[in-house]
Design a binder for these strands. Structure first.
Length: 398
DNA sequence: TGACGTCAAGATCCG
DNA sequence: CGGATCTTGACGTCA
């Protein structure tokens, strides 16, 4: 909160955030995830004058260490100021804050010591009942941006105001690359006759050598929620249909999805040129108890599916996973999975922990508490007893 | 004035 | 106290 934004707090939060992002990058490297969006909140109040901390100097070596990891692993990062960064506003103060905010994003990426292929993604902003004038204002305010911002800037179509035609016009005019977002284009399209691939090819023309590979945003609609809401997970069949029809695959596809890393790994495994069933076995080790909890039938099905070690039935595997996770919780499955996980501790837990577990377990059976309580207790035990296998498990996420 | 997006952290209430 | 549930926030546009 802004009232807590004193130098000591800011210092502590930044140190903590850098530590977290460092761990996240290690995770990405381990999982072969090559695209990563860095949160704009990495530096709290990064573009607000209330933050007077000279964070660039104070954390110089931490930034450079992280930057080195990004570069040596071949990772590509990006940042995405949200809907509140509006460069084409009528209000001069809003425009000034938007410029300050973009400068902050560029400074942050510069601090990592990484090249101009690591992008800052921006939407155009408001319409104010006159799109032509609003675009004109965007273009003229663009001139006030620092070179450090311009070299990283990419422009994206949004879900209600500026469609992909608008973006191609603006991007071409300013000689800035355009990011195509498939879901935004679906709900705010300029020409329904043209498909995604047409627009992707058009956007390709706006990417220059120094921008790195073309990048697009890919997401799917959450069918239960309002138009434009991102799905919990990437439905693999739908993704593969999109991917298989992509003519040029030399591009980066940034997934926008609630379960982030899970879908990233899913799509990576599904599109690998060189594959090995060991990758699916590794995934299975993480999903196992979540699936056991949701659906015993799918649990058996997956075990059978992975029996042939020369096979790589990746799509069938994720179909099973998606199918199982969509099912409603039932108490029998939850009890079964919880007991399996408890199996890791039954011989090492203290008497007190045993009592605690079975008290909670009985309370759950009598519907007095939710399964979440059991799971968070088991999670604490996994940490205490350093059960690596469980610490990697997705069981605790669902 | 609230919805929009985002979601962890904080506040509050309950037993 | 643990746990469940509700509220909040740095930001701007639009209906």
């Amino acid at each position: 909160m802004i009232k807590n934004a004193n130098e000591e707090n800011l210092y502590d939060i930044i140190a903590h955030n850098l530590c977290v992002i460092d761990n996240t990058i290690d995770y990405n490297i381990k999982n072969n995830i090559k695209l990563f969006r860095i949160s704009s909140d990495l530096i709290p109040f990064g573009s607000n004058p209330i933050n007077t901390l000279p964070w660039i100097e104070l954390f110089k070596s931490e930034f450079l260490d992280i930057g080195k990891k990004i570069l040596t692993s071949g990772m590509r990062v990006s940042m995405h100021p949200g809907q509140y960064t509006v460069l084409n506003s009528f209000d001069e103060g809003v425009v000034k804050r938007a410029i300050d905010d973009l400068n902050y994003h560029a400074l942050l990426l510069d601090s990592f010591g990484i090249g101009s292929d690591h992008k800052i993604v921006l939407h155009i902003g408001g319409v104010y009942n006159d799109k032509k004038a609003a675009v004109k204002r965007f273009i003229s305010n663009y001139q006030y941006l620092e070179q450090s911002v311009k070299k990283r800037l990419v422009l994206e179509n949004d879900d209600k105001s500026y469609n992909i035609c608008d973006l191609l016009e603006i991007g071409t005019n300013l000689n800035q690359p355009v990011i195509f977002d498939n879901l935004h284009n679906k709900i705010n399209s300029c020409d329904k006759e043209k498909n995604d691939y047409y627009w992707i090819n058009e956007c390709r023309k706006t990417w220059r050598e120094k921008d790195g590979q073309q990048k697009i945003h890919y997401s799917q609609q959450d069918c239960e929620k309002s138009r434009g809401a991102h799905s919990n997970t990437i439905r693999i069949n739908e993704f593969m249909e999109f991917y298989n029809n992509l003519e040029m695959k030399d591009m980066d596809i940034m997934l926008e999805v609630k379960d982030k890393n899970l879908s990233a790994i899913k799509c990576i495994n599904s599109t690998l040129k060189k594959n090995d069933i060991k990758l699916l076995e590794l995934e299975w080790s993480k999903y196992k108890y979540a699936i056991l909890e949701k659906s015993h039938i799918d649990y058996i099905g997956i075990r059978k599916l992975l029996q042939n070690k020369n096979d790589y039935p990746v799509i069938q595997f994720y179909n099973f996973i998606e199918n199982a996770l969509e099912k409603q919780n039932d108490m029998g499955g939850s009890i079964n999975a919880a007991l399996h996980v408890w199996g890791y501790f039954k011989d090492i837990a203290t008497i007190k922990e045993k009592d605690n577990f079975f008290n909670k377990f009985d309370a759950y059976k009598q519907e007095k508490i939710s399964i979440k309580i059991i799971k968070s207790f088991l999670w604490k035990l996994a940490i205490k007893y350093e059960q690596i296998y469980l610490l990697e498990s997705y069981y605790f996420l669902f």
